[in-house]
Design a protein around this nucleic acid. Sequence first.
DNA 1: CTGTTCGTACAGAAAAAACTGTACAAAATT
DNA 2: AATTTTGTACAGTTTTTTCTGTACGAACAG
Lengths: 181, 181
Amino acid sequence: MMGSSEKIEQARQDYIESLAETMEMYGLSPSMGRLFGIMFFHDEPMTLDEMRGLTGMSKTSMSTGVRALSRLKLVHKKWQKGVRKDLYEAEHDQFRSFVDFFSQLWEKEIELNQKTLKKAEKNLTNLLNDPELTPDEKEQVESDLSKLEQAQLYYTWLEKLAHSFESGEIFKHVPIPNQKE
Amino acid sequence: MMGSSEKIEQARQDYIESLAETMEMYGLSPSMGRLFGIMFFHDEPMTLDEMRGLTGMSKTSMSTGVRALSRLKLVHKKWQKGVRKDLYEAEHDQFRSFVDFFSQLWEKEIELNQKTLKKAEKNLTNLLNDPELTPDEKEQVESDLSKLEQAQLYYTWLEKLAHSFESGEIFKHVPIPNQKE
DNA sequence: CTGTTCGTACAGAAAAAACTGTACAAAATT
DNA sequence: AATTTTGTACAGTTTTTTCTGTACGAACAG
């Protein structure tokens, strides 16, 4: 038979594990997910050493893990007077975490691919003027160009979507439901 | 100096590599990304052996890779009369790929976490009636419950968002721009 | 029925990622 | 100024993932 404290702990652990699995789907490592889960339930901002204590992992891992989570804005550094150690807490607003996470991801995709896309488009367009181009090759180039043009359209749209997430406009179109569902 | 064909090939390769990097961000392996890129440019549906030829990888890898891409609906099996081998082609509609990919991901997150969430909620709620609960523990339970309630709100919202993607409703709110931007 | 061809399961090898302990620089404390 | 505390860089180890080759069953062809 479990005592009350153990039951509380068990419920937490179960949900944390579930959260971690989810975050794994999104490309984070399981331990980073678990770390986030722990911070999600921890009411006070945490130090690296506390994290080490609760995860049982090395301080180095905590340091890198929490920095990765910070970059994704899932976790924030929080300053407290009189405390020398760095303090971190999980972002309380899950909606914010969500929209930030995906808009960041998509912005990165856009930046990365659009650069390459433009360059490829330019090279191919130049090639169209090359007199040595065989008819077959020309057709090939045109086919590729039309694919890239289509892709460009997609990136333009994605940019708009990312903005809509970042700005919170998305919540106008898909509103947050009332407390009582 | 490069011939025309090499230049075409180079432009493709560059973009493919870029695509692959993006897909890596989304948790796919680089080679799966590259495979998708190749199929993106390949006009005809491809057989496993053609893929093997173009990627230089084993047929086993092609088989598993293409099946993973199929599950994500980034690639489709296509039947052609008289052809015995399985044929696959990349989904032409990038918008569809995108919304399918993310709504699938989110639905999975919801299913996975909501189950655990409900169970944890139930256990904690039961615990509230336990006479052995110390005041501290009670506070703890209530704090956890309120976090879970908040999370539930998030899943309810996410479900709506996923539907909006799946159904294409999202395109009403964030319209696809015109061909000529 | 016999011999091919095709896709995939599976075990092991190769490659990549995650994790740890040590070492050290920066900042704070004495 | 000397000492302690704190976070991170880095090298090496462990764990996980990815990839390959062999083997085999199913579908087809002769």
